[in-house]
Design a protein around this nucleic acid. Structure first.
Length: 620
RNA sequence: GCCUCGGUAGCUCAGGGGAUAGAGCAGCCGCCUCCUAAGCGGCAGGUCGCAGGUUCGAAUCCUGCCCGGGGCACCA
C-alpha cells in the first residue's frame, strides 16, 4: 500500500464532513490519536465514500468497532464492521470487507490490511508507526498519552463523600483510590474534570456527633455522664472533645444531673435508644443555647473534616471543592430545587410530609423531601446538589458510590427528570466492597476488636503506593480481596513492586551508563531505531504504542483496572527483554536505539503510575 | 419478595458478541563470571454455575433455575 502524508487524509476528512453529515471528524490531529481511534476513522471514511457513491445504501453508518487482536497472525487491530453490516446491506461479509478495504484512505501508520476469517479487516501496524512511537514518547514526555484538554465532555466527579462523623475506613479507601485514579484518567483522556467531596454536615448523624463530643467534653471536665449506646464511641471523639475544651474551656459545661434529668431510658428495645439520643440532642440545644451548641457542632465538624482531608491528602487524593450540605440550605439552593420540582407538578402532601412522585419517574417508591417535622430530608439535599452540579457542569455528573448505595441510582435519575434535566447526564459507578486478608486469614473489620479499620492504618501498614494500586487492580465493579501480606511483599508476586522495579531497573541502566563514562545519544538512537528488531523489542514497541488507547478505553469504561493491568503487562515485557539482552553494548547504534526504547518504557511506566497515584522510584 | 453485583485453572482475577478462553500465585523443571535473581524461561492445569433461547458466530446478549456478596428508612 503506497503511503501518503496523513495531512492528505485530514483534508479528505474535511471534504467528506461537508459531503455527508453521517461522517463525523474528530478535532484531534491524527498523530495525537491513539492507533485505535485512527483506524476507526479510516474505516469511517471508507464507509463515507461508499455511501456517497451509492455503493452502500444506509441511513447512518454504525461506528466501527476496532479491537486489538489477540494473536499476531491477525495483525494488530481488527475491525468487524463488515460482519455486522453485511446483512443490513445484503452483501456477504467478505465481499463487503473487500469493498471497505478498497476505499480505505492510505495511512503511514498502517502496513497492510488483510481480510480474514468470516470477514474481519485485520490491520497491521507499519514499522514506521512502531518507530515513531518511541520518538513520540520521548518528545511528549509526561504528556504522552494525554489528549488535548476539552476534547471530551466535562465531568463533575463526586467521590468519597463519607460522612464526617468518624475517620475514613478501608472501605472508603477503595472509593478514594478509584475515584482519584479515574479522575486522573478522565483528565488524561481529554475531559475537564471537577473533583468534589460532598460533606454531609447537616442532619441527625451530625447532631449525634456533636452530642457525643459534648458528652466526652463533660467527662473530661469531670462530670459524671452516661454515654448513649447510639453515640459515637470511638476514641477520636475524646480527641475532638479535648480540642473543644482547649477552645472553649468550661463555657460549655453543665452538670451531669442537668444533662440526664428526665430523659427517656437508653434501651435497645422499642426504639428506646433512638428516643434517648434524640432527647439528648434536644437537651444539649436547650442547655447550650444556639451559640453554645453551634460551637460544639462546628468544632466537631471542622476537626473531623480536617482529619479526613489530611488523610486523603496523604493518600494523594485531592478535591477541587468540598461541598457543604448546609451550604445548600443557606444559599437557598434547596428551596430552589424544591420549587422546581413543585413547578413540574412532582410534589404532593401526605401525612403532613411533602413527597416527590418518584414512582412516576422510574423509581420504585415515592420519596419524602420535607418531613412532618418541617425538616428537609437527605434526599432533598441530594436533589439540590444535583441541580447545582448540572448547572455548573455542561457534561456528565459522575457519582462514585459504595455498592450499598445502589438504591440511590433510580431515585437520583428520577430527580433529574423531575428537575427537567436529562437523566443520561448522570453516570453512576458502584464500587464493591474490599475484604482485607492477612495471608489466608480474613481481617475482621469490627471497631471493637481493635484490628485495623481505618484507611490511615492501612496506609501506614502497606504504604500509599501498594494501597493505591491494590485498590484499583481489580474492576471496581468486583469484590476485592486485599492481601496485606502480598501488598507488603517486595517480590515479583507483588504487582506494585514488580512494576516499580521495572522503572527502577531502567533508571539503573542509565546510572550504569554514566558510570562507564558513556552518554545516551538520543539522535543516534532515533536514527537507528530500526535496529530494534528483536521479538522482545517489537513487542515492547507495540505495547508502548497502545498506551494512549488504554487511557482512552479506561476513561470510556470508567475502569482504572485496565490501566493497572496494562502497566503490569508492560513491566513484564520489559523484564523479559532486560533478562534477554544487554543494552550497554559496543555498537553505538544498537546501544542508543535500545536506550531510547528503555527511556520510552520508563516514561510510559511513569505516566501510567502517575495516573494511578503510585510513585515511580529511581531505585529500590 | 424486589433490586443489584457476581459464579471462568487448586487460589486470586482478566476477557463482557467474533477467529485456538488468558495472566499471576500455588505445583513441577530449568537460568546469575554479565546493566538489580526484588528478575527470566519452560511444563502441567478449563464441561467459562446449570438448562433453554437469539445469532453466520455466545464465556460474552435474553429467559428460567441453582449458589454466594450487598441493598431495599419521614437514618445520614
Amino acid at each position: 500500500m503506497p503511503t501518503r502524508l496523513s495531512t492528505a487524509f485530514v483534508d479528505n476528512a474535511a471534504r467528506l464532513a461537508e459531503a455527508s453529515a453521517a461522517v463525523t471528524i474528530a478535532p484531534v490531529p491524527p498523530d495525537c490519536q491513539s492507533m485505535r481511534a485512527h483506524i476507526k476513522e479510516l474505516v469511517t471514511q471508507a464507509l463515507g465514500y461508499l455511501k456517497r457513491d451509492g455503493v452502500l445504501v444506509i441511513d447512518q453508518a454504525p461506528e466501527p468497532e476496532v479491537e486489538r487482536t489477540r494473536s499476531r497472525e491477525h495483525g494488530d487491530y481488527a475491525c468487524n464492521i463488515a460482519l455486522g453490516l453485511a446483512r443490513v446491506v445484503g452483501k456477504n461479509p467478505r465481499e463487503l470487507a473487500e469493498l471497505i478495504r478498497s476505499r480505505l484512505p492510505d495511512s503511514r501508520r498502517v502496513e497492510k490490511v488483510d481480510i480474514a476469517g468470516p470477514g474481519f479487516l485485520n490491520f497491521f501496524a507499519s514499522p514506521h508507526y512502531l518507530r515513531v512511537v518511541v520518538r513520540d514518547i520521548l518528545r511528549a514526555g509526561d504528556d504522552y498519552g494525554r489528549a488535548p484538554e476539552g476534547s471530551r465532555d466535562d465531568v463533575l466527579l463526586e467521590y468519597v463523600s463519607a460522612n464526617p462523623t468518624g475517620p475514613l475506613h478501608v472501605g472508603h479507601g477503595r472509593g478514594a483510590a478509584y475515584g482519584a485514579s479515574l479522575a486522573s484518567i478522565l483528565s488524561a483522556a481529554g475531559h475537564r474534570v471537577q473533583r468534589e467531596y460532598y460533606v454531609n454536615d447537616y442532619g441527625r448523624q451530625m447532631d449525634i456527633l456533636a452530642v457525643s463530643v459534648w458528652l466526652r467534653y463533660l467527662e473530661l471536665a469531670g462530670e459524671r455522664v452516661a454515654f448513649p449506646s447510639n453515640g459515637y464511641h470511638g476514641d477520636y471523639i475524646y480527641d475532638i472533645a479535648r480540642e473543644v475544651r482547649r477552645r472553649h474551656g468550661d463555657h460549655l459545661r453543665h452538670t451531669g444531673m442537668d444533662v440526664a434529668e428526665g430523659l427517656p431510658v437508653d434501651a435497645d428495645r422499642d426504639g428506646g435508644a433512638e428516643a434517648h439520643i434524640d432527647a439528648l440532642i434536644e437537651r444539649a440545644r436547650q442547655l447550650l443555647g444556639e451559640q453554645g451548641y453551634e460551637a460544639c457542632f462546628s468544632a466537631a465538624l471542622e476537626i473531623m473534616v480536617a482529619d479526613i482531608r489530611d488523610d486523603l491528602d496523604g493518600f494523594g487524593v485531592v478535591f477541587d471543592r468540598w461541598f457543604s450540605e448546609r451550604g445548600l440550605q443557606q444559599s437557598g439552593a434547596l428551596d430552589r430545587a424544591l420549587k422546581r420540582l413543585e413547578a413540574g407538578g412532582w410534589l404532593y402532601r401526605k401525612d403532613g410530609a411533602t413527597w416527590f412522585k418518584a414512582t412516576e419517574l422510574g423509581d420504585d417508591k415515592d420519596r419524602v423531601v420535607v418531613r412532618e417535622n418541617g425538616r428537609s430530608t437527605y434526599f432533598a439535599s441530594d436533589v439540590a446538589y444535583l441541580l447545582d452540579k448540572l448547572e455548573r457542569c455542561s457534561g456528565t455528573s459522575l457519582y462514585i458510590f459504595g455498592a450499598d448505595h445502589h438504591g440511590y441510582v433510580p431515585r437520583l435519575k428520577a430527580a433529574a427528570r423531575g428537575l427537567g434535566e436529562n437523566p443520561d447526564r448522570l453516570d453512576f459507578q458502584l464500587v464493591q466492597f474490599a475484604v482485607l486478608y492477612r495471608g489466608q486469614t480474613k481481617v475482621q473489620m469490627s471497631t471493637r476488636s481493635g484490628s485495623f479499620v481505618t484507611l490511615r492504618e492501612l496506609r501506614e501498614e502497606v504504604g500509599n503506593d501498594a494501597a493505591r494500586y491494590f485498590y484499583v487492580m481489580r474492576s471496581h465493579d468486583q469484590h476485592l480481596d486485599f492481601d496485606l501480606e502480598l501488598a507488603k511483599s517486595r517480590a515479583s508476586e507483588n504487582p506494585v513492586y514488580y512494576i516499580q522495579y521495572a522503572h527502577a531497573r531502567i533508571a539503573s541502566v542509565f546510572r550504569k551508563l554514566e558510570e562507564t563514562g558513556q552518554r545516551h545519544n538520543l539522535a543516534i538512537g532515533e536514527s537507528s531505531i530500526h535496529r530494534l528488531d528483536g521479538d522482545h523489542e517489537q513487542e515492547l514497541l507495540r505495547s508502548l504504542g497502545r498506551y494512549p488507547e488504554v487511557v482512552e478505553n479506561a476513561a470510556e469504561r470508567r475502569s482504572a483496572h485496565l490501566l493497572a493491568h496494562y502497566l503490569y503487562e508492560l513491566a513484564g515485557q520489559f523484564h523479559a527483554w532486560y533478562n534477554n539482552s544487554h543494552f550497554l553494548v559496543e555498537d553505538e547504534e544498537v546501544r542508543n536505539a535500545r536506550l531510547n526504547l528503555t527511556a520510552a518504557t520508563g516514561q510510559v511506566l511513569r505516566n501510567g503510575l502517575g495516573l494511578l497515584g503510585v510513585s515511580a522510584p529511581e531505585e529500590m
